[in-house]
Simulated assay, not measured.
Amino acid sequence: MTQKPKQEAEPEVEATGFELFRDKLRLLYHGSSPAAVRFQFSVLIVDVAILAFFIASPLLWDSPTYLYVDYSIAALMFADLAARMLASTDITRWLRQPANWVDIFILATLLVPVLGNFGFLRVLRLWTISQSQVIWKPLRKHGLMRYEDAGKAVINLVTFLFVVAGFIFTFFYAPGSGIDGYLDALYFTVTTITTTGFGDITLPGPLGRITSIIVMIIGISLFVRLAQQVFRPFKISFPCPQCGLQRHEPDAVHCKACGHILKIPDEGN
């Protein structure tokens, strides 16, 4: 019998320094290690700095340090965007994500200030963080899962408040208009959402009325959502293997829909 020739083992391809660098970025941006969590919170500080610069920009327009601060923040944001793109396993898919195009647009306004300052859109990163496990995993680890839904509802409401206040400040700010600063825009947003409507600040023109209507409708919906999460009985997310019902009482033994026996782990396990 003729012996089959032995197949030679394929040589292992060593990862290049650039690939190792991308792997390290991927672990920092998407990992859950202590170092990754510290890095992710440091990136959050950059987001807060951009928002603070947006709020203070009317006071800095005539300052000689305005452009210096503007371009410094633009450099930080460019570095963050480039690092996120390199950390992605599929750059083409990364470029198709709307949130990244928002960041690119904000970067353009920082590099060319005459386009306007839309740094308030960076607040949308709060919503992105609320969908990740960076914040909620420690709660689950310590048996505090009951606060996750309420926490997400609070973040959604806060994000909406600051985005709307930033929008109003950007498009309705003018001396003598009643919107003389970011605090006025935030005050108007809160009074509109709560339907208090003191009337001391109103948005002019048809665009102002349409904006007020949209803010009231969405704001009330978010308030109702938050109230539901705070006051409704706590239920745990655990899909029933038989009927697929997602939410059950933490101590449930049988599924209310089909009676199938559940094996819900205790909190903290």
Rank of each mutant, 00 (worst) to 15 (best):
L222H: 02
I129S: 02
D103S: 13
K152M: 12
Q97P: 06
F54S: 06
A15F: 07
P98R: 01
T109D: 14
R96L: 11
P206H: 03
R22S: 06
Q40D: 08
D184K: 04
F223M: 14
L222V: 05
K24P: 03
F198I: 02
E8I: 15
Q133D: 13
S177E: 01
D266T: 11
A150I: 14
F120C: 14
D90Q: 10
F223Y: 12
T65M: 15
P34Q: 00
I50L: 08
L226A: 08
Y147I: 07
L245D: 02
F78Y: 11
D80T: 03
L111P: 13
G268F: 05
Q246N: 09
E249M: 07
L111N: 14
F21T: 05
T195N: 08
V37A: 02
L44Q: 05
I213W: 05
I135A: 03
F169A: 09
K4A: 15
G178I: 00
A185W: 00
F198H: 07
R146Q: 10
L110M: 13
L81I: 08
L161V: 13
I193R: 00
R93G: 12
T65S: 15
L27T: 02
A56S: 09
G151T: 04
Q228A: 09
L76E: 12
Y71T: 07
M77H: 13
G151C: 09
